[in-house]
Amino acid sequence: MAETAAGALWYRRLVLALLLAPALLWLLALIVLPHFDLALLSFRARVAPREYVASLAQYRSFFGEPLYWHVFVRTALLSAFATALTLLVAFPIAWIIAKLARGRMSALLFVVCLIPFWVSETVRTLGWMILLRESGVLPALLVHLGITAQPVELLYHDATILVGLVYTSLLFMVVPLVGSLESLDNSLIEAAYDLGGKGWPILRTIVIPHAAPGITAGCIVVFMLTLGNYLTPTLLGGKNSLWFTEQIYAQFITRFNWEQGAAFGFLLLALSTAMVWLGLKASGQRFSDVMRRV
């Protein structure tokens, strides 16, 4: 009897070890150690070929060189703006899906909203480029309608980057919003209306507080994805995009200055993490719950 008990214990330990191995290998070898290494890389400077010293030079040059931190601040502000815009565009459609459309219509509208996101971002960006560039569809249409005399270049503006970013982010806002609005009981709104409430006060005092977890989840994810986006800003913004991920690419791949690129990477990671943390604090939610909503 004792022998089988020991055997069973041994068996359980073996199962645990076998299940732990892939998880630990994945997280240590691909997440924890690489980021630790990246941190080390960012805190050193090259003094001679193959000779390095610990130093803050990479971070000093970030704050010393206006171009670097201007691009950083610009990326952060544009990302925040794009997130707010995405929320504004997505909220009405989420409301219509969750509350106004009924049964099949609501399900159909929801699926239709998801369809474009099965196609890669590259394809969607190609569409915007054909639509907006000087020889493209919209400028030609504007000339045809007599609004402009010559085709105008609609690419390579900040507004173009924003349109592209909102477009790629919509899905990640609509899904959590629909989830949180569906759980709102209609009778609460009816009661407020019967008591004399008008549209805006009802929205502010009942709907938004109820949907807050969904709004936070959507905003966190959209901000993070926008901040880390590379394709949309570089293709729609061209040389004027000045997006921070582009600086990281330039340091790492073009200039082969890995120390500087690592420092930039860490600054971006710090900003992204700080915003996620702030969003969670502000709404009093747990990280794991937010990730399950999206």
Partner: peptide
């Protein structure tokens, strides 16, 4: 899921 893809890329590249 909350680490930007570019940073996942450079950290794995460097390591």
């Amino acid at each position: 899921l909350v680490i930007p893809g570019v940073i996942l890329g450079i950290s794995i590249l460097a390591f």
